[in-house]
Amino acid sequence: MLTEWQFVGIFFLLSPIFPAAPIIAQHLLGPRKPNRIKQETYECGIETVGDSWIQFKVQYYIYALAFVVFDVEAIFLFPIAAAYGQLTLFGIGAAALFIFLLADGLVYAWDRGILEWV
């Protein structure tokens, strides 16, 4: 039971060390002479205007939302696929209907022009 996850748990606890070690090494080995010009935000040579908050496209939000819906669908489908050997034809039909309904949503989104990049 839990022993299966023991390796993953230990891996999770130890894994930050591997990227952190070289970063710390750089802090120790590298020079440190910060100045105002050096720390300026990088932007083609002139001083940055305003803060870095930029107008966010609604488009991105739609893609993220569609992704959430399909992700939740995947969560249902994965155990069903694992149990595929035990499924009856009825079960197959139910799973196919499930996928079909989701595909419907995609067709609707397409039809309403949501997937168009504007």
Binding site: L97, L101, L102, G105
Partner: peptide, 23 residues
């Protein structure tokens, strides 16, 4: 199986709702 299909309809509803709101 019934809750499962209802969940699918719910997801479809969520997607359509989001599309209508964000259109």
């Amino acid at each position: 199986v019934l809750p499962f299909e209802v969940a699918s309809v719910l997801l479809l509803g969520a997607l359509i709702g989001a599309i209508v709101v964000a259109q």
